[in-house]
């Protein structure tokens, strides 16, 4: 498997407070990787540093052969990273359809690009709600919309920060099923979530973060056999 995303020794600060202390990680083509760890350990900061929403002060981010370190977020997105952010970031004053269409692009000219039709096929709820404003959706619908919106930018790697947080159990299952389908289609994924069970089934490898460092990494099988890791660093 060739490496798609390679992060080396990334260090990030919020103003004068250092949050990432040299994180290194990699995601292969079509691979699903998770970021685990308690709140405030640097998972979301890592995502922001990857996406160009926070400029790292040291280290490198390489994606598909391009150096994206410190590039503005729109360049990172055009290179093929799709983001479903924590809190979903839906445009509340746009309709569901407009949310999907507004930022849609296929900069890399990927074959068989995502269309409104394909997104609505994956999430039929969005078709029913297409003329509603983003603000009027339920949490689950918003998460489907955020995923659909990111897919419409035809990414090679999709990053989901808190994939199922605050959602009802049935909706969660929908989201996990959707992520299975995306992974099967060859899309690479970085998933952050608090539900270890589904993550162990979905993902290939895991990175455990604590205080801005990677303290453990390995495949799902190894993580299943080390409950002490989860207990010590993730709190499960």
């Amino acid at each position: 498997m060739s490496t798609l995303l390679e992060v080396v020794d990334l260090k990030s600060w919020y103003a004068s407070i250092q949050v990432l202390f040299g994180v290194s990680m990699a995601v292969g083509e079509g691979e699903c990787v998770t970021l685990l760890g308690r709140n405030g350990m640097g998972k979301s900061t890592l995502v922001k540093s990857l996406m160009g929403l926070l400029a790292p002060r040291a280290g490198t981010v390489r994606f598909a052969g391009q150096d994206l370190t410190g590039k503005p977020s729109y360049r990172v997105a055009r290179a093929g990273l799709g983001l479903v952010p924590e809190g979903r970031g839906i445009f509340p004053n746009l309709t569901v359809r407009e949310n999907l269409v507004a930022t849609a692009h296929n900069q890399r000219a990927a074959p068989g690009p995502w269309t409104l039709e394909r997104v609505c096929e994956m999430f039929p709820r969005l078709r029913e709600r297409s003329l509603n404003l983003g603000a009027n959706l339920s949490g689950g619908e918003q998460q489907m919309l955020a995923i659909g919106r990111a897919l419409m930018t035809n990414p090679r790697l999709l990053i989901l920060d808190e994939a199922t947080e605050g959602l009802a159990p049935l909706i969660r299952q929908d989201i996990w099923r959707c992520l299975e389908r995306l992974k099967a289609s060859g899309l690479a994924l970085i998933v952050i979530d608090k539900n270890i069970g589904p993550l162990l089934r979905l993902a290939d490898r895991h990175y455990v973060l604590s205080k801005g460092n990677v303290v453990w990494s390995g495949p799902s099988a190894a993580l299943r056999e080390s409950p002490d890791v989860l207990q010590a660093w993730v709190g499960v």
Binding site: G52, V76, L94, N99
Partner: peptide, 24 residues
């Protein structure tokens, strides 16, 4: 228009407009 959508989107959640590939 699409430009109008981006203008409205940029007014509500500008960071996401950028993170989805639009040069703000």
């Amino acid at each position: 228009t699409r430009l109008g959508m981006l203008i409205r989107a940029g007014a509500s959640v500008p960071t996401m407009v950028g993170a989805l590939g639009v040069n703000l």
